[in-house]
Amino acid sequence: MSNLLEQQKQLKIQKGIRQAEDMLVTWVQDALDDKKSYGDLEESQFRNLLRVSDTTESTEVIKNFLRYQVGRDKKWGRGKDSLAAKIIQDIETRIKERANKIAQEAKAEDVNAILLELTRRYLGYGARHLKYKRDGEFNV
């Protein structure tokens, strides 16, 4: 019986994550569409962030990597209006709120796993949108 309940919980979590995808796409596109918030950010640099998210179980590690990148050069922007700050803000507020809502609806205890999955998807959609911004936007 416990196994069935766990499966139902996981299905609810996955459904909640899928239902959040439109929001995730919109949020990261809004951040990337504000070109004045960052410099000449390359797709490979955004993909490095995505790789970090895939190799950790901590959103704090992801945010730490973003802060490190801001310290290295201006491609991620500078200050509170930078792309990096916007991504960190989205993780700490919008994405975290959505993760909490999904966990609450599914009666799940591990909010961190949901937060991490939503963050990974958000960053993945961001990598796609940045590719479009850099190579496809003016060719359409």
Rank of each mutant, 00 (worst) to 15 (best):
R78F: 10
K35P: 04
S58W: 05
L118W: 01
K86A: 15
V61Y: 05
Y68G: 08
Y68H: 10
I62P: 00
A106D: 10
R94L: 15
D40P: 01
Y38G: 01
D54E: 15
D22I: 10
A113L: 07
I114C: 05
G16A: 04
Q10M: 11
S37F: 01
A85Q: 14
N112E: 11
L49V: 02
R47D: 14
T59R: 04
L41Y: 05
Q14W: 01
Q10F: 06
T55Q: 15
I95M: 10
G39S: 07
K12E: 13
K86H: 13
E43M: 09
K36H: 06
R78C: 09
D33L: 04
L115T: 06
D33G: 01
E105Q: 12
G77D: 09
K80V: 07
Q10T: 05
E117K: 09
V52P: 01
L11P: 00
T119H: 09
K35S: 13
G79W: 11
E43Y: 05
D110P: 01
D54S: 15
E105G: 10
I102L: 07
Q45G: 12
V111E: 10
I95K: 05
D81K: 08
N48K: 09
L116K: 05
S58A: 08
T26S: 14
W76I: 00
G71H: 05
Y68K: 12
L115R: 08
K36D: 13
A85V: 08
I62E: 04
T55G: 15
D34G: 03
I87R: 00
L118N: 00
V70S: 13
F46C: 07
V111L: 05
D30P: 00
E105A: 08
I62D: 04
F65G: 03
L41W: 06
L83S: 06
L49H: 02
L41D: 05
K15A: 06
G77A: 13
L32K: 07
E117L: 05
R72E: 12
D90P: 05
R78G: 03
V70C: 14
K96M: 15
V111W: 03
K86Q: 14
N112D: 14
I13L: 03
K80R: 14
A113T: 10
K63C: 08
A20F: 07
K63R: 14
R78D: 10
T26I: 06
I17F: 02
E42V: 04
L116M: 14
G39K: 04
E21W: 06
R72I: 15
V25W: 12
A99P: 03
A108C: 07
D33H: 02
W27L: 15
T26P: 00
F65I: 03
S82L: 05
Q45E: 15
E42M: 13
Q104G: 11
G39E: 01
K86F: 10
V70Q: 13
